[in-house]
Write a protein that binds this DNA or RNA. Structure first.
Lengths: 188, 188
DNA sequence: TACCATGCGGAGAGAGTCTCCGGTCCGCTA
DNA sequence: TAGCGGACCGGAGACTCTCTCCGCATGGTA
Protein backbone atom coordinates (compact mmCIF):
# COMPACT_ATOMS: atom_id res chain seq x y z
CA UNK A 1 0.00 0.00 0.00
CA UNK A 2 2.71 2.46 1.04
CA UNK A 3 5.14 0.60 -1.25
CA UNK A 4 6.28 3.76 -3.01
CA UNK A 5 9.25 2.31 -4.82
CA UNK A 6 9.18 -1.11 -6.43
CA UNK A 7 11.71 -3.66 -5.20
CA UNK A 8 14.94 -3.94 -7.10
CA UNK A 9 14.98 -6.94 -9.41
CA UNK A 10 17.57 -8.92 -7.44
CA UNK A 11 15.81 -8.17 -4.19
CA UNK A 12 12.51 -9.41 -5.55
CA UNK A 13 14.22 -12.57 -6.83
CA UNK A 14 15.71 -13.31 -3.43
CA UNK A 15 12.44 -12.56 -1.71
CA UNK A 16 10.57 -15.08 -3.85
CA UNK A 17 13.24 -17.72 -3.49
CA UNK A 18 13.18 -17.35 0.27
CA UNK A 19 9.43 -17.75 0.38
CA UNK A 20 9.52 -20.94 -1.68
CA UNK A 21 12.30 -22.52 0.31
CA UNK A 22 10.78 -21.42 3.61
CA UNK A 23 7.42 -22.98 2.84
CA UNK A 24 9.17 -26.26 2.11
CA UNK A 25 11.34 -26.09 5.19
CA UNK A 26 8.50 -25.22 7.55
CA UNK A 27 6.35 -27.96 6.10
CA UNK A 28 9.15 -30.44 6.57
CA UNK A 29 10.65 -29.48 9.93
CA UNK A 30 7.84 -27.56 11.54
CA UNK A 31 8.08 -23.96 12.54
CA UNK A 32 11.41 -24.51 14.26
CA UNK A 33 13.26 -25.01 10.98
CA UNK A 34 16.71 -23.43 10.93
CA UNK A 35 16.61 -19.98 9.37
CA UNK A 36 20.25 -19.92 8.37
CA UNK A 37 19.59 -23.17 6.63
CA UNK A 38 16.69 -21.69 4.73
CA UNK A 39 18.91 -18.80 3.67
CA UNK A 40 21.60 -21.21 2.54
CA UNK A 41 19.15 -23.35 0.60
CA UNK A 42 17.79 -20.23 -1.05
CA UNK A 43 21.34 -19.26 -1.99
CA UNK A 44 21.41 -16.00 -0.05
CA UNK A 45 23.26 -14.77 3.02
CA UNK A 46 21.49 -14.78 6.36
CA UNK A 47 21.57 -10.99 6.36
CA UNK A 48 19.35 -10.98 3.31
CA UNK A 49 16.86 -13.27 4.96
CA UNK A 50 16.64 -11.10 8.06
CA UNK A 51 16.33 -7.92 6.03
CA UNK A 52 13.29 -9.22 4.21
CA UNK A 53 11.81 -10.99 7.21
CA UNK A 54 12.87 -9.46 10.51
CA UNK A 55 11.46 -12.32 12.57
CA UNK A 56 10.80 -15.99 12.14
CA UNK A 57 7.17 -15.20 12.48
CA UNK A 58 7.23 -12.73 9.60
CA UNK A 59 8.70 -15.36 7.32
CA UNK A 60 6.25 -18.01 8.46
CA UNK A 61 3.36 -15.68 7.79
CA UNK A 62 4.59 -14.56 4.40
CA UNK A 63 5.22 -18.14 3.36
CA UNK A 64 1.67 -19.18 4.11
CA UNK A 65 -0.61 -16.20 3.55
CA UNK A 66 -1.70 -17.49 0.18
CA UNK A 67 -2.79 -20.80 1.66
CA UNK A 68 -4.65 -19.03 4.40
CA UNK A 69 -6.41 -16.93 1.79
CA UNK A 70 -7.06 -20.16 -0.08
CA UNK A 71 -9.08 -21.40 2.88
CA UNK A 72 -11.23 -18.31 2.78
CA UNK A 73 -11.89 -18.72 -0.95
CA UNK A 74 -12.59 -22.40 -0.51
CA UNK A 75 -15.38 -21.57 1.95
CA UNK A 76 -17.32 -19.73 -0.72
CA UNK A 77 -16.78 -22.51 -3.23
CA UNK A 78 -18.19 -25.04 -0.80
CA UNK A 79 -21.09 -22.76 0.01
CA UNK A 80 -22.03 -22.86 -3.65
CA UNK A 81 -21.65 -26.60 -4.04
CA UNK A 82 -23.23 -27.99 -0.88
CA UNK A 83 -26.13 -27.33 1.49
CA UNK A 84 -25.05 -25.01 4.32
CA UNK A 85 -24.61 -27.60 7.05
CA UNK A 86 -22.51 -29.87 4.91
CA UNK A 87 -20.52 -26.98 3.52
CA UNK A 88 -19.58 -25.93 7.02
CA UNK A 89 -18.60 -29.42 8.11
CA UNK A 90 -16.56 -29.99 5.00
CA UNK A 91 -14.80 -26.67 5.37
CA UNK A 92 -13.86 -27.39 8.96
CA UNK A 93 -12.58 -30.76 7.83
CA UNK A 94 -10.37 -29.22 5.17
CA UNK A 95 -9.17 -26.65 7.64
CA UNK A 96 -8.06 -29.40 10.00
CA UNK A 97 -6.37 -31.37 7.25
CA UNK A 98 -4.43 -28.30 6.16
CA UNK A 99 -3.47 -27.47 9.70
CA UNK A 100 -1.98 -30.88 10.23
CA UNK A 101 -0.40 -31.53 6.85
CA UNK A 102 1.60 -28.35 6.70
CA UNK A 103 3.40 -28.51 9.98
CA UNK A 104 4.35 -24.88 10.17
CA UNK A 105 0.80 -23.77 9.72
CA UNK A 106 -0.55 -24.97 13.02
CA UNK A 107 0.42 -21.99 15.11
CA UNK A 108 -0.28 -19.66 12.26
CA UNK A 109 -3.88 -20.67 11.89
CA UNK A 110 -4.19 -20.47 15.62
CA UNK A 111 -3.02 -16.88 15.57
CA UNK A 112 -5.15 -15.98 12.59
CA UNK A 113 -8.03 -16.81 14.85
CA UNK A 114 -6.87 -14.64 17.71
CA UNK A 115 -6.58 -10.91 17.94
CA UNK A 116 -3.36 -10.71 16.02
CA UNK A 117 -0.63 -8.14 16.26
CA UNK A 118 0.58 -8.61 12.71
CA UNK A 119 -0.95 -6.61 9.91
CA UNK A 120 -0.39 -9.27 7.31
CA UNK A 121 -1.91 -11.99 9.41
CA UNK A 122 -4.71 -9.83 10.71
CA UNK A 123 -5.74 -9.10 7.16
CA UNK A 124 -6.03 -12.68 6.13
CA UNK A 125 -7.29 -13.75 9.53
CA UNK A 126 -10.14 -11.37 8.83
CA UNK A 127 -10.76 -13.11 5.53
CA UNK A 128 -10.88 -16.49 7.23
CA UNK A 129 -13.15 -15.23 9.96
CA UNK A 130 -15.36 -13.60 7.36
CA UNK A 131 -15.65 -16.87 5.50
CA UNK A 132 -16.51 -18.67 8.73
CA UNK A 133 -19.20 -16.11 9.47
CA UNK A 134 -20.87 -16.61 6.12
CA UNK A 135 -20.89 -20.39 6.50
CA UNK A 136 -22.11 -20.18 10.07
CA UNK A 137 -24.99 -17.85 9.41
CA UNK A 138 -26.15 -19.92 6.44
CA UNK A 139 -26.07 -23.09 8.53
CA UNK A 140 -27.92 -21.39 11.34
CA UNK A 141 -30.60 -20.19 8.99
CA UNK A 142 -31.00 -23.71 7.71
CA UNK A 143 -31.35 -24.84 11.30
CA UNK A 144 -28.47 -27.29 11.19
CA UNK A 145 -26.31 -25.33 13.62
CA UNK A 146 -27.19 -24.22 17.11
CA UNK A 147 -27.91 -20.53 17.34
CA UNK A 148 -25.43 -19.48 19.99
CA UNK A 149 -22.15 -20.54 18.43
CA UNK A 150 -19.84 -17.78 17.38
CA UNK A 151 -17.86 -18.31 14.17
CA UNK A 152 -14.63 -17.68 15.98
CA UNK A 153 -15.49 -20.31 18.56
CA UNK A 154 -15.92 -22.76 15.77
CA UNK A 155 -12.55 -21.89 14.30
CA UNK A 156 -10.89 -22.39 17.65
CA UNK A 157 -12.64 -25.67 18.19
CA UNK A 158 -11.48 -26.78 14.75
CA UNK A 159 -7.99 -25.89 15.79
CA UNK A 160 -8.50 -28.03 18.86
CA UNK A 161 -9.88 -30.90 16.83
CA UNK A 162 -6.81 -30.75 14.63
CA UNK A 163 -4.72 -30.99 17.77
CA UNK A 164 -6.68 -33.99 18.99
CA UNK A 165 -6.43 -35.72 15.62
CA UNK A 166 -2.72 -35.03 15.50
CA UNK A 167 -2.29 -37.06 18.68
CA UNK A 168 -3.98 -39.92 16.85
CA UNK A 169 -1.53 -39.80 13.99
CA UNK A 170 -3.40 -37.13 12.15
CA UNK A 171 -5.23 -39.17 9.53
CA UNK A 172 -8.33 -37.88 7.81
CA UNK A 173 -10.40 -40.51 9.56
CA UNK A 174 -9.44 -39.21 12.99
CA UNK A 175 -10.42 -35.72 11.96
CA UNK A 176 -13.79 -36.93 10.68
CA UNK A 177 -14.35 -38.86 13.87
CA UNK A 178 -13.60 -35.96 16.18
CA UNK A 179 -15.66 -33.57 14.09
CA UNK A 180 -18.55 -36.00 14.29
CA UNK A 181 -18.28 -36.20 18.05
CA UNK A 182 -18.16 -32.44 18.23
CA UNK A 183 -21.16 -32.04 15.94
CA UNK A 184 -23.35 -34.66 17.53
CA UNK A 185 -22.25 -34.07 21.08
CA UNK A 186 -21.21 -36.53 23.73
CA UNK A 187 -24.57 -37.13 25.36
CA UNK A 188 -25.87 -40.66 25.62
CA UNK B 1 12.96 -51.65 39.38
CA UNK B 2 16.51 -52.62 38.42
CA UNK B 3 17.83 -49.83 40.65
CA UNK B 4 20.25 -52.15 42.50
CA UNK B 5 22.18 -49.51 44.34
CA UNK B 6 20.55 -46.52 46.03
CA UNK B 7 21.70 -43.08 44.92
CA UNK B 8 24.52 -41.46 46.80
CA UNK B 9 23.28 -38.76 49.20
CA UNK B 10 24.72 -35.83 47.23
CA UNK B 11 23.38 -37.21 43.97
CA UNK B 12 19.91 -37.57 45.40
CA UNK B 13 20.07 -34.02 46.75
CA UNK B 14 21.00 -32.63 43.37
CA UNK B 15 18.38 -34.72 41.68
CA UNK B 16 15.63 -33.34 43.90
CA UNK B 17 16.84 -29.77 43.57
CA UNK B 18 16.86 -30.07 39.81
CA UNK B 19 13.31 -31.37 39.79
CA UNK B 20 12.02 -28.54 41.92
CA UNK B 21 13.75 -25.84 39.93
CA UNK B 22 12.80 -27.45 36.62
CA UNK B 23 9.12 -27.58 37.50
CA UNK B 24 9.22 -23.86 38.29
CA UNK B 25 11.17 -23.01 35.17
CA UNK B 26 8.96 -24.99 32.83
CA UNK B 27 5.84 -23.53 34.38
CA UNK B 28 7.24 -20.06 33.94
CA UNK B 29 8.93 -20.20 30.55
CA UNK B 30 7.23 -23.14 28.91
CA UNK B 31 9.02 -26.25 27.82
CA UNK B 32 11.71 -24.25 26.07
CA UNK B 33 13.23 -23.02 29.33
CA UNK B 34 17.02 -22.87 29.31
CA UNK B 35 18.53 -26.03 30.76
CA UNK B 36 21.83 -24.47 31.69
CA UNK B 37 19.84 -21.88 33.53
CA UNK B 38 17.95 -24.55 35.43
CA UNK B 39 21.25 -26.14 36.38
CA UNK B 40 22.60 -22.81 37.54
CA UNK B 41 19.50 -22.03 39.59
CA UNK B 42 19.73 -25.46 41.17
CA UNK B 43 23.34 -24.75 42.03
CA UNK B 44 24.83 -27.59 40.01
CA UNK B 45 26.93 -27.81 36.87
CA UNK B 46 25.28 -28.53 33.57
CA UNK B 47 27.06 -31.88 33.46
CA UNK B 48 25.15 -32.93 36.53
CA UNK B 49 21.86 -31.98 34.96
CA UNK B 50 22.57 -33.96 31.82
CA UNK B 51 23.77 -36.98 33.77
CA UNK B 52 20.52 -37.22 35.65
CA UNK B 53 18.32 -36.23 32.72
CA UNK B 54 19.85 -37.07 29.36
CA UNK B 55 17.24 -35.11 27.41
CA UNK B 56 15.03 -32.13 27.95
CA UNK B 57 12.13 -34.46 27.65
CA UNK B 58 13.36 -36.71 30.45
CA UNK B 59 13.55 -33.73 32.78
CA UNK B 60 10.16 -32.44 31.76
CA UNK B 61 8.61 -35.82 32.43
CA UNK B 62 10.31 -36.33 35.76
CA UNK B 63 9.30 -32.85 36.88
CA UNK B 64 5.64 -33.48 36.24
CA UNK B 65 4.92 -37.16 36.81
CA UNK B 66 3.51 -36.50 40.22
CA UNK B 67 1.02 -34.00 38.86
CA UNK B 68 0.03 -36.41 36.15
CA UNK B 69 -0.51 -39.06 38.78
CA UNK B 70 -2.46 -36.47 40.71
CA UNK B 71 -4.92 -36.24 37.85
CA UNK B 72 -5.47 -39.97 37.99
CA UNK B 73 -6.11 -39.87 41.74
CA UNK B 74 -8.40 -36.89 41.37
CA UNK B 75 -10.61 -38.89 39.00
CA UNK B 76 -11.43 -41.39 41.70
CA UNK B 77 -12.09 -38.66 44.23
CA UNK B 78 -14.56 -37.02 41.89
CA UNK B 79 -16.19 -40.36 41.14
CA UNK B 80 -16.93 -40.69 44.84
CA UNK B 81 -18.25 -37.16 45.28
CA UNK B 82 -20.40 -36.63 42.21
CA UNK B 83 -22.77 -38.52 39.93
CA UNK B 84 -20.89 -40.15 37.01
CA UNK B 85 -21.73 -37.64 34.29
CA UNK B 86 -20.81 -34.65 36.39
CA UNK B 87 -17.68 -36.33 37.68
CA UNK B 88 -16.49 -36.88 34.12
CA UNK B 89 -17.22 -33.32 33.05
CA UNK B 90 -15.53 -31.89 36.09
CA UNK B 91 -12.49 -34.07 35.62
CA UNK B 92 -12.10 -33.02 32.01
CA UNK B 93 -12.42 -29.44 33.15
CA UNK B 94 -9.66 -29.81 35.70
CA UNK B 95 -7.53 -31.59 33.16
CA UNK B 96 -7.86 -28.64 30.80
CA UNK B 97 -7.13 -26.11 33.51
CA UNK B 98 -3.99 -27.99 34.50
CA UNK B 99 -2.88 -28.30 30.91
CA UNK B 100 -3.09 -24.59 30.39
CA UNK B 101 -1.86 -23.31 33.73
CA UNK B 102 1.34 -25.27 33.82
CA UNK B 103 2.82 -24.28 30.53
CA UNK B 104 5.29 -27.13 30.23
CA UNK B 105 2.61 -29.71 30.76
CA UNK B 106 0.76 -29.23 27.52
CA UNK B 107 2.89 -31.46 25.34
CA UNK B 108 3.40 -33.87 28.16
CA UNK B 109 -0.25 -34.57 28.68
CA UNK B 110 -0.58 -34.90 24.95
CA UNK B 111 2.07 -37.59 24.92
CA UNK B 112 0.67 -39.35 27.94
CA UNK B 113 -2.36 -39.90 25.81
CA UNK B 114 -0.45 -41.33 22.87
CA UNK B 115 1.46 -44.55 22.59
CA UNK B 116 4.50 -43.24 24.37
CA UNK B 117 8.10 -44.30 23.99
CA UNK B 118 9.07 -43.34 27.50
CA UNK B 119 8.70 -45.83 30.31
CA UNK B 120 8.11 -43.21 32.93
CA UNK B 121 5.46 -41.45 30.93
CA UNK B 122 3.85 -44.63 29.70
CA UNK B 123 3.42 -45.75 33.27
CA UNK B 124 1.58 -42.67 34.36
CA UNK B 125 -0.16 -42.31 31.04
CA UNK B 126 -1.61 -45.70 31.81
CA UNK B 127 -2.83 -44.42 35.16
CA UNK B 128 -4.50 -41.44 33.52
CA UNK B 129 -6.08 -43.60 30.84
CA UNK B 130 -7.24 -46.04 33.49
CA UNK B 131 -8.88 -43.24 35.41
CA UNK B 132 -10.56 -42.03 32.24
CA UNK B 133 -11.85 -45.50 31.56
CA UNK B 134 -13.45 -45.79 34.97
CA UNK B 135 -15.18 -42.43 34.65
CA UNK B 136 -16.30 -43.18 31.12
CA UNK B 137 -17.81 -46.55 31.84
CA UNK B 138 -19.67 -45.20 34.86
CA UNK B 139 -21.09 -42.34 32.83
CA UNK B 140 -22.08 -44.69 30.07
CA UNK B 141 -23.86 -46.96 32.48
CA UNK B 142 -25.73 -44.00 33.82
CA UNK B 143 -26.70 -43.16 30.26
CA UNK B 144 -25.21 -39.67 30.30
CA UNK B 145 -22.49 -40.46 27.77
CA UNK B 146 -22.91 -41.87 24.29
CA UNK B 147 -21.91 -45.50 24.05
CA UNK B 148 -19.31 -45.35 21.32
CA UNK B 149 -16.79 -42.92 22.79
CA UNK B 150 -13.45 -44.35 23.71
CA UNK B 151 -11.82 -42.96 26.85
CA UNK B 152 -8.71 -42.11 24.93
CA UNK B 153 -10.74 -40.14 22.41
CA UNK B 154 -12.12 -38.12 25.24
CA UNK B 155 -8.67 -37.39 26.57
CA UNK B 156 -7.53 -36.22 23.19
CA UNK B 157 -10.57 -34.06 22.74
CA UNK B 158 -9.92 -32.54 26.13
CA UNK B 159 -6.42 -31.76 24.99
CA UNK B 160 -7.96 -30.11 21.95
CA UNK B 161 -10.40 -28.13 24.05
CA UNK B 162 -7.51 -26.88 26.14
CA UNK B 163 -5.86 -25.76 22.92
CA UNK B 164 -9.00 -23.96 21.81
CA UNK B 165 -9.42 -22.28 25.18
CA UNK B 166 -5.80 -21.23 25.16
CA UNK B 167 -6.45 -19.25 21.98
CA UNK B 168 -9.16 -17.44 23.89
CA UNK B 169 -6.85 -16.43 26.66
CA UNK B 170 -7.23 -19.65 28.57
CA UNK B 171 -9.66 -18.64 31.27
CA UNK B 172 -11.81 -21.16 33.08
CA UNK B 173 -14.89 -19.74 31.43
CA UNK B 174 -13.58 -20.49 27.96
CA UNK B 175 -12.87 -24.05 28.97
CA UNK B 176 -16.37 -24.45 30.39
CA UNK B 177 -17.85 -23.00 27.23
CA UNK B 178 -15.96 -25.29 24.88
CA UNK B 179 -16.66 -28.32 27.01
CA UNK B 180 -20.33 -27.44 26.94
CA UNK B 181 -20.31 -27.17 23.17
CA UNK B 182 -18.55 -30.48 22.96
CA UNK B 183 -20.94 -32.15 25.35
CA UNK B 184 -24.13 -30.81 23.85
CA UNK B 185 -23.04 -30.89 20.24
CA UNK B 186 -23.28 -28.23 17.59
CA UNK B 187 -26.59 -29.21 16.07
CA UNK B 188 -29.36 -26.65 15.87
C1' DT C 1 29.13 5.31 -19.14
C1' DA C 2 29.09 6.69 -14.64
C1' DC C 3 26.90 7.43 -10.40
C1' DC C 4 24.87 6.07 -5.94
C1' DA C 5 21.16 4.31 -3.24
C1' DT C 6 19.55 -0.11 -2.69
C1' DG C 7 20.55 -4.40 -1.47
C1' DC C 8 24.02 -8.24 -0.65
C1' DG C 9 26.79 -11.55 2.15
C1' DG C 10 29.14 -13.49 5.64
C1' DA C 11 32.01 -12.64 9.74
C1' DG C 12 31.20 -12.65 14.38
C1' DA C 13 28.88 -11.79 18.95
C1' DG C 14 25.64 -13.93 21.92
C1' DA C 15 22.75 -17.60 23.75
C1' DG C 16 21.81 -22.26 24.28
C1' DT C 17 22.93 -27.43 24.11
C1' DC C 18 25.58 -31.13 25.33
C1' DT C 19 30.18 -33.73 26.17
C1' DC C 20 34.28 -34.77 28.33
C1' DC C 21 37.41 -35.50 31.89
C1' DG C 22 40.33 -33.97 35.89
C1' DG C 23 39.12 -33.51 40.40
C1' DT C 24 36.05 -34.11 44.63
C1' DC C 25 33.81 -36.34 48.18
C1' DC C 26 30.66 -40.20 49.77
C1' DG C 27 30.34 -44.36 52.06
C1' DC C 28 32.31 -48.75 52.92
C1' DT C 29 35.85 -51.49 55.27
C1' DA C 30 39.29 -52.61 58.62
C1' DT D 1 38.60 -42.93 62.26
C1' DA D 2 41.64 -43.30 58.47
C1' DG D 3 42.00 -44.60 54.03
C1' DC D 4 40.54 -46.16 49.65
C1' DG D 5 37.84 -46.76 45.31
C1' DG D 6 34.54 -45.42 42.58
C1' DA D 7 30.33 -42.68 42.10
C1' DC D 8 29.53 -38.15 41.16
C1' DC D 9 30.63 -33.27 40.38
C1' DG D 10 31.49 -28.96 37.65
C1' DG D 11 32.61 -26.13 34.14
C1' DA D 12 35.57 -25.47 30.04
C1' DG D 13 34.77 -25.76 25.41
C1' DA D 14 33.02 -27.47 20.88
C1' DC D 15 29.05 -26.99 18.31
C1' DT D 16 24.59 -25.03 16.56
C1' DC D 17 21.43 -21.52 15.81
C1' DT D 18 19.97 -16.56 15.84
C1' DC D 19 20.58 -12.03 14.55
C1' DT D 20 23.47 -7.66 13.56
C1' DC D 21 26.66 -4.93 11.33
C1' DC D 22 29.16 -2.90 7.72
C1' DG D 23 32.29 -2.98 3.62
C1' DC D 24 31.20 -4.18 -1.00
C1' DA D 25 28.50 -5.29 -5.29
C1' DT D 26 24.97 -4.10 -8.46
C1' DG D 27 20.58 -2.58 -10.63
C1' DG D 28 18.33 1.48 -12.26
C1' DT D 29 18.79 6.00 -13.93
C1' DA D 30 20.55 10.08 -16.40
Amino acid sequence: MTQVRPMRADARRNYERLLTVAAEAFAEHGEGASLDDIAKRAGVGSGTLYRHFPTRRALLEAAYVDRLEGFARRADELARELPPGQALTEWLYELCVGTIQVRGMRTLLGCAVTDGDSTLLTACGTQVRGAAERLVSAAREEGSLRGDVEPVELLRLAHGVAGAAELDGGGGESIRRYLTLLTEGLRG
